[in-house]
Design a protein around this nucleic acid. Structure first.
Lengths: 127, 127
DNA sequence: ATCCGTGCAAAGAATTTGCATACAT
DNA sequence: ATGTATGCAAATTCTTTGCACGGAT
């Protein structure tokens, strides 16, 4: 049985407020402002707990620490190779799966897709 | 300028001989049989060097250590959730990219796709 | 009263790096 | 001779965990 905690509430709030897929460290620093005694271990514990309850998503990155996404549905992300930002990118999930399933003799249950390139903001600034 | 070394040769040989995307540790253990003094640091150094020269691919995994692929072209992998095997999976690259680019205002330069599910072998054994 | 969650610090896993020496060019 | 590569061990980075205590139910 899961019990309420101020820390978990703060972590969820920090994560939900952001659209930039923060790292545990970032969440920790932000949570510290409203809760100076919170520890990094607690942040990790809660993030893992939330992920295993399918409330949030852990986003593995090609480099550096994991990032966290308040949207629990597995969906593709875009990694900007210029500014390192991580964005959501809208991709047809069914098509993605069927691309993999097509001709494959096993059973495809899901797909984690990471697109990379130059994000709209950097593209605009470059011009 | 890059200089020849027995160690690098052994590492390349071990990697090329395998189709199972070994970890650095696995390569290290295998290389040790023909070269007992080789160190894990050397294995990592060479793998990173080869990857940055685009001779091999580093395959990030959802859990556990990175794996290495003698095929340097970025291509999708399949992770078996039963036996943890990592397989190549044949997916139309152009379609994959265009799925991401479609409607996205940035510039998509590539995609790292990880499919997961049950591999053909496990599927067969389950029946 | 029970037992889940916390802070802290230590441990762990994976990978990188500094340094003196060995080897390829 | 020059400079890259190596072995070794220590250092880094990111994350998990053990433990005693505090707080939610």
């Amino acid at each position: 049985m899961i019990k309420y905690s101020k820390q978990r509430e703060a972590i969820i709030k920090c994560l939900s407020d952001r659209k930039d897929h923060p790292t545990a460290e970032t969440i920790y620093n932000e949570a510290k402002e409203i809760m100076p005694n919170i520890s990094l271990g607690t942040v990790y514990r809660n993030l893992n707990q939330l992920a295993s309850m399918n409330k949030i998503l852990i986003v593995k990155t090609p480099y550096g620490p994991d990032r966290y996404d308040p949207n629990p549905n597995q969906h593709p992300h875009f990694f900007c190779t210029e500014c390192s930002k991580v964005l959501d990118i809208d991709v047809d999930k069914e098509k993605l799966i069927s691309l993999g399933q097509d001709g494959f003799k096993g059973e495809v249950n899901g797909c984690i897709s990471s697109y990379y390139g130059i994000c709209p903001t950097c593209l605009m600034n470059n011009k």
